[in-house]
Design a protein around this nucleic acid. Sequence first.
RNA 1: GGGCGCAUAGCUCAGUUGGCUAGAGCGUACCCCUGAUAAGGGUAAGGUCCCAGGUUCGAAUCCUGGUGCGCCCA
Length: 944
Amino acid sequence: MSTNAKPYKETLNLPATGFEMKANLPAREPKMQEGWREQDLYARLREARRGAPRRVLHDGPPYANGDIHMGTALNKMLKDFVVRSLSMRGFDSPYVPGWDTHGLPIEHKVMKDLGPKAASLDRAEVRELCRVEAMKWVDVQRAQFRRLGVLGDWDDPYLTLDPRYEAGIVDVLADLLDAGYVFRQLKPIHWCTSDQTALAEAELEYRDETTPSIYVNFPMVAGVPDAWLAAEGSKPEEWSAMIWTTTPWTLPANVAVAVHPDLTYAGVRYVDPETGQVVRTILGADLVARVMELRKITDFAEVGRCKGRELEHAQYRHPFLDRVSPIVLANYVSVEDGTGLVHTAPGHGGEDYQTGLAYQLPVLSPVGPSGKFTDEAPEWLVGLHVFAGNPKVVAHLKESGHLYLESPLSHSYPHCWRCKKPVIFRATEQWFVGVDRNDLRGRTLEEIKQVRWYPEWGQARIEAMVSLRPDWCISRQRSWGVPIPALGCTACHAQLLTAETARHFRDLFRKEGADAWFSRPVEEILPPDAKCPQCGGTSFRKEGDILDVWFESGSSHRAVLAKGFELGFPAFMYLEGSDQHRGWFQSSILTSVGTTGKAPFESILTHGFVVDDKGRKMAKSEGNAIPAVKATEQHGADVLRLMVSSMDYADDVRISERSIKEASEAYRKIRNTFRYLLGNLEDYAKFDPSTVDLATLHEIDHWALGQLNGVIRDALAAYERFEFYKVHQRIYQFFSVELSSFYLDVLKDRLYAEEPLGADRRAAQFVLHKLHDVLTRLLAPILPHTAEESWGYMPHGQDLPASVHLATFPEPDPRWDDAERDARWETLREARDAILRALEGLRKDKTIGSAQEASVVVAAPAADLPLLQADRDLLATICLVSEVEIREGSGADRFQVSASRSAHGKCERCWNYRPSVGRSPEHPTLCERCVRVVTAAAEKGAAS
RNA sequence: GGGCGCAUAGCUCAGUUGGCUAGAGCGUACCCCUGAUAAGGGUAAGGUCCCAGGUUCGAAUCCUGGUGCGCCCA
């Protein structure tokens, strides 16, 4: 060890920066976010982009209940990537976040918390509690979204409970009424006859219940296959169709029997063991034996078979009503149990209702709110509760000879979550938007084609859904929402709901909120000159239905885009999970086409779902969910954002502790590279980059800037296509491969050992500065906190915005493009790879440690010799070896490398092995270059 | 059960109109450096391209049928 080792080290320009290696994001990010709020970054960005072409990403409102989860976080991060990258591309891209604040889950939560007290509150009081509950979660989620670094107008978001928004919803409804889309029709819903209230699926509890299970022969009228008739010499009237049901009370509402088109059915003749009569009936072929066995009938025979579709439109007579009904086809029919023929009552079942729509069957529901048969039912049932009606119906069928068998059956049956009693399906009048009125469906499909879909298959998906969707039921029998402002005539029970009356209430809601509907007496809020369209009466009551929440959020193009927030209609983009093809995308485009004729969005971007590392869905109940809030607090938003940016969101996104850990490692690499850049730029700030003479740049500097051009081009192209994972991949690999392991490594000698103000070092710094500037900008949408931090250290002085988020993306500088140079560097790097491989051999046998200790001889084919010989010293530089010798030679590989320990001495200052070491009497342990640098520094020191 | 997707190294992704021993980065193992240091560098090992048929001189790529997973319906 030389005694003056220390002094020489002090003559080096080692990196120094306040940009810490340890990110400590959990502490640093909130502080930075506070700073952005203080300086109102969002407003300043709006100001900076004023007048620029506008591109609005319209936020789909998340539901305001509970903490955000990884899926919502993913969605918001992607939105933020889009909005920020649009801004940096120079667009004016405001982002107004919103919340979906009405709806069942909130109401359900409130009712549950209330418990028995719920019954004593009126709807206005319940609504107030719901409002408090919703706003609580709006505040919670707002803080959580902000914590993720999402930039937007968080102080003035849109809320579906806002009177302005509520007015927008009713405005849309009014326009749809105007155009004749809205009508009223019966539809079955879950109904609790004890609480006399409608129930949603979420309010049902399934438990076993024992009900009568009955097999009934419905007498045929027509449509029995001819072959069967011929074989038996029988008439259609001598045949039956056997159905099976566990709800005998619904038989009065029977209007069809459903069979599966592809199942095989059999015509069966058997002798009834009790009556001795011959019976001919239709059964699912696979079920014949099982059904006969139920009554131990052995005397039966198959007459013939047919497919279910051959029975379509056959006719039967109702077993106790004077009614002839058809056999219809339905795909849900199975041979799991029963007879393969399904009793169909559209007024009492969901599937039945769908089938009813397809065949235009009447919806019968002769049951009142208390569960008692109305006078539309047969007189022997009128006034009875439906469950009491069960045995009556069974007895009646038995008497009339239609009953094949009755036996009790225990099966899963829905019960009311509140009173725990079994519920029924009961049809009530509901409001609908007719999808085929005025060809809304066809026009929507046309508009879908005008939209740009990312990924493209989104179009096919929504087209399939829109093509097949039924009319839209917009009624909900709840309290927490925007009322359908329909008035019921107290004289004749007709409904008054027109575009004019709706607009009256729109204006009322805008002033007082939808609460007015619930809290004010009907006389006070009646439209002027309200008159019953049917009887001319002027006495009304407020009807109770509220609008489907999908109608609410689907009206945001009116409440937020067109009015209220003046973002502009249509929006540039909607961005949501792929489930929204059925949800928000569809409710939005339907209401928009219905009211304006146009889609509310120019493009749709969908992302997949968050799944675990095995590709399984994330669910709290599965125990594989990564809590988004906790993960952010633990690892930092930028790490999560980096993780999200690395994956192709078009498919499902796999998130696990491991993927977060991998993102953390990638983050460290990026951060440390920035730290290196900044560490070597510390003294650069004092100089104006424009004073650097570009002629002083080394060839490798040209090469690096050329590579950077490639990164800029690729990253910008990927941003334009919203392919953030390509941005990530490209930039990250550049950091890792071109910079960290090559260019920055090679640059160390120049940066550390050359004269601090000399042209060589300045040239290197010029490039570092450029790299830093470009990469900070390119990463800003993905890593807003880290980019901002890095930006703050940027050596600059002139006309750069204080925040990177006000800046725009860099552009490639064609001065550094040179394909011929790049080709030459391909060769040099290939030679370098060969050399590095050879050095590994020397390390194995401990001949050398660092590359600097080695000398290499490269044998190359004649064609490569001119290049290699000309760049011999450059090759040594980029391999960090003592020296390189070039020879002609050939072998299996392009370059044959032999390496040995350098014969030269080690420079104590720069640690290179150089022939010049020892030549200077003043500095016998230094190489020529270091002698020059040290001497110059000493002279400068003496002079100053 | 139906509609729409996805499936290439442990992970994240490339693989252009079918044509090289299927690539990259990360991670891993081993090694080096100790002047980016709770950093940095190097080398290497990793793949029945989900499976099975088919078309073709030739298939990760095209066709058919499966399997698994996701979303939406039923």
